[in-house]
Design a protein around this nucleic acid. Structure first.
Lengths: 124, 124
DNA sequence: CAGGATCCCCTAGGATACTG
DNA sequence: CAGTATCCTAGGGGATCCTG
């Protein structure tokens, strides 16, 4: 099976141990990173929305993931000074760009999950 | 920022705790899974090639990653009964399909890594 | 409501040595 | 060459309690 590989320009760097892309990939493809990014691709959402949306996520991990993504400039945080507090999260332009790549990946995983995990038929 | 979200059909399942896609995503977006898949998108490669290519990977993790991907039907293993041993790895059709989604992601990470990590300007 | 702060566990992942 | 077998640890990630 031959393929559409990485442009040769990337071929060097991407596999290098010290390449910053390693870090970015780690953040972005972390257990919850993907889900949060994809969830936000549907538009601005509140903390509690995300908490319920990404079923199974702990408060700690939601906070941590959000903070990392914010530092990376992928997610923007809008805290409103009201009581009770209200904080909305949304994608930055760059985050949106990324989510456009992530959404097809997640959709693919969803489509193929059954066959991959349960070996339900080889057809495709 | 509004977006091209997941088709509503996926919206439910993907975020559910028990969804098999969680497992698939974990395998595929694992630290080394992405790199191996992308490396193989360039064509069949030997164990030792991959070991050198994915700079920093340990033998243990290479073996483990390859085995998981093989079980998932994404990578196929071709062991030739010669001395010294020679084993080639390549993508299955499904793995190839997946790599087509992964390659742009890695390329994006590579392009944006510097600005994300070092905050080198906001321009794009 | 939206988190911080703590404590703790588990396992992904590294290092090293050995083998068919 | 292409792995397995062991041992070991950093930190990803969960549970719980606290607060502006």
């Amino acid at each position: 099976m031959k393929a559409a590989p990485l442009p040769p320009a990337f071929a060097d760097g991407v596999f290098a141990a010290g390449c910053p892309s390693r870090t970015v990939l780690d953040h972005v493809t972390s257990k919850w990173g993907v889900l949060i990014l994809v969830a936000l691709s549907e538009g601005e959402q509140r903390w509690s929305d995300l908490r319920r949306r990404a079923e199974g996520i702990s408060e700690k991990m939601l906070a941590q993931t959000l903070k990392t993504l914010e530092r990376d400039g992928l997610v923007s945080r809008d805290a409103q000074p009201v009581i009770p507090p209200r904080v909305d999260y949304s994608l930055t332009e760059r985050g949106y760009e990324l989510s456009a790549l992530l959404v097809p990946l997640v959709a693919w995983a969803f489509d193929n999950a059954d066959e991959i995990i349960n070996g339900t038929g080889k057809a495709k």
